[in-house]
Simulated assay, not measured.
Amino acid sequence: MELRKNQQLEKLEKRVQDGNYYEAQQMYKTINSRYMAAKKYAESIDLLQSGAVMQLKHGQVTCGTELGVLLIDTYNTAKVPCDTISIDRIRAIFNEFPRASNFSQEKVDIAADSKATEKTITAKTHVEGCMAFLKAALKWSIEAGGPHRGAPELHDMLADYVWTQSPVPEMYKASQYFVRGSHPETFAKAVVQWMHQCYPGEADLVVARAVLLYLSLGNLRDANLLWDAVKQSLSDSSKEFPDTPLMHFIRFLLSTLERDALPLFRILRQKYKPSIDRDPTFDEYMDEIGERFYGLQRRNGGMQGMLSDFIKMFATDS
């Protein structure tokens, strides 16, 4: 039986190698339907992982994404737990999504082009496919016993691909995943890159937004790690860290949240109101931070902006 299964996979892989992508895709789906009907979930998982990897190796992102999502559907049907083995299968597929070398350095040139180039369209297709696959995986991880925000490893994968492969900077989109992942130092590298790509005079807004996102989730540790890593990175490259009232506020806020200092929190918010008001979302972040760290009741009404969307991300995206 094992020999027959291996021979079957070899035939399918040969069709892909010969360029018969659509024919192979239909065969993968037909065989998978038979496995699912017979409740042969292990065979289905092996087939779909192999097929997704093979299609992606040959640049067939639409086909690879479809098989990857079918793999997640099988995880759900078979009630596969969120563990190292199941995550590693997802990672094996993720690793085969196409990557443009030095793409992050080319973002500015591509964005400046008034006409949508073929390269831009291709890159957007790749990002959309990878996001569709990993978002399905995130939803499965939540329902399969993983963390309530989804497996951090999957957030790390999403953040990495959106950051490095999007044809134009996707700061907010990538940040959603960075802050739910487990690598604040990598997030800091993205923040430094975005500081160089933003409008003049807004580099401090990029840093503040990243720190406040962590704090809005109650994650003071990673907020501090990111803050220190950004400062260190700029120092190593002989670049100056922004010396603005907003950066002074963030530094004082990080220190204040280390202790039970609600009066100081309120004083900081009042004193640095002009800096906080530079971005309409910052006031909403501060409401969330006050609730998480000091139990303050959130104010009714007000703007339902990006933070609300961020907090509700899994109610919509997943």
Rank of each mutant, 00 (worst) to 15 (best):
E2Y: 11
R4T: 02
Q8D: 02
K14W: 02
R15Y: 02
D18F: 04
E23I: 07
I31M: 05
N32Q: 11
S33H: 05
R34M: 06
A37D: 02
A42C: 09
A42K: 15
I45F: 06
D46I: 13
D46C: 06
L47F: 13
Q49L: 08
G51A: 03
M54Q: 14
H58F: 11
T65H: 00
L67W: 01
G68I: 10
L71Y: 03
L71S: 08
Y75S: 13
Y75R: 07
T77E: 13
K79T: 11
D83Y: 09
R89E: 13
R89S: 06
R89D: 07
F94N: 13
F97P: 02
F103E: 07
V108W: 05
D109H: 09
D109R: 15
D109M: 14
I121R: 02
K124P: 00
V127Y: 03
C130I: 06
A132E: 09
F133G: 01
A144K: 00
G145A: 06
H148N: 09
H155S: 05
V162A: 08
Q165A: 14
P169F: 04
K173Y: 14
Y177K: 11
G181S: 12
S182H: 09
H183T: 06
P184T: 11
V192G: 00
V192Y: 02
W194L: 08
W194A: 12
C198V: 15
A203C: 05
V207K: 06
R209T: 10
Y214C: 06
S216N: 10
R221M: 06
S233A: 15
S235Q: 05
D236N: 11
S237H: 07
S238F: 12
S238M: 13
E240W: 01
A261N: 11
R269T: 12
Q270Y: 08
D277E: 09
P280G: 02
Y285H: 15
Y285A: 15
D287G: 03
D287N: 13
D287T: 10
E288Q: 14
E288I: 10
F293P: 07
R298E: 01
M303R: 15
D309P: 01
I311E: 08
M313C: 04
D317G: 01
